[in-house]
Computed example of a mutant assay.
Amino acid sequence: MNQQIENNFKYHAPKEGQPAKYEAIREKAKELAYLIDVKCPNSREKSLAMTKLEETVMWANAAIARNE
């Protein structure tokens, strides 16, 4: 059995303190999203920046869920 695969593909119920960490990450990312929205012209590049920012939040939250 591969422990990494098992960990990556199971449900991780939030532990004490984790929801506050998720919220802090989302709030900072939202600040950056608004800055990008205001400062960048509508374009494919802007859309990609927003998508990558969403991915960043997802992976940061996964790091917390999977490794704490």
Rank of each mutant, 00 (worst) to 15 (best):
Q18M: 08
E6W: 14
A33P: 00
E6I: 14
K21I: 07
A33F: 11
A63C: 08
S43E: 03
V57G: 02
A65I: 01
I25S: 04
I36F: 06
M50T: 02
N42H: 14
E45S: 10
T51I: 12
T51G: 11
I64M: 05
N42K: 15
A65F: 03
Q18N: 02
A49G: 03
R26C: 07
P19H: 01
V57K: 01
Y34E: 15
N8K: 12
L48D: 11
N2C: 09
I25F: 07
E55F: 12
P14V: 07
S43C: 04
A24E: 09
S47F: 12
N7G: 04
E27F: 08
A63W: 08
L53V: 01
R66T: 04
S47K: 13
A20Q: 13
A24R: 10
T56P: 05
E45T: 08
N2S: 13
E55H: 10
P41M: 06
I5D: 09
E6M: 13
A49Q: 03
M1E: 10
I5W: 14
K10R: 12
K39G: 06
Y11S: 13
R44V: 11
A60V: 02
W59R: 11
K15H: 05
A63V: 04
H12V: 00
R44K: 14
R66V: 02
K46S: 03
Y11P: 07
Q3R: 13
K28A: 10
E68A: 06
E31C: 05
E6F: 15
W59D: 09
N7A: 07
L53R: 04
K10T: 06
I5E: 10
A62C: 14
T56W: 09
V57N: 04
K21E: 06
W59M: 10
N8Q: 12
W59P: 05
L48S: 11
Q3P: 09
H12A: 02
Y11E: 12
P41G: 01
N67K: 06
E16K: 10
Y22N: 01
A13C: 02
S47A: 14
I5G: 06
E27D: 11
W59L: 13
V57R: 00
L48Y: 11
K46Q: 01
Y22S: 00
N42S: 15
C40A: 15
A24V: 06
P19S: 04
I5L: 15
W59V: 09
M58D: 12
Q4D: 15
K21D: 01
E6Y: 14
E16Q: 12
N42Y: 14
P14N: 07
L32M: 01
N8D: 12
L32H: 00
R66L: 05
A63T: 05
L35S: 15
Y11T: 13
A24M: 09
I25K: 01
G17F: 00
E31N: 07
I36K: 05
L53Q: 00
I36L: 08
L53S: 01
W59K: 09
P41T: 05
N7Y: 06
N61T: 05
M1W: 11
I25L: 07
A49P: 01
R26L: 08
E16G: 07
A62F: 14
N67A: 02
M58F: 13
I36V: 08
N67C: 06
K30Q: 14
H12S: 01
A60N: 05
I64H: 03
L35R: 15
Q3T: 12
E54H: 08
N2L: 11
V38I: 15
Q4S: 15
A24T: 05
A65N: 00
I64T: 03
N67L: 04
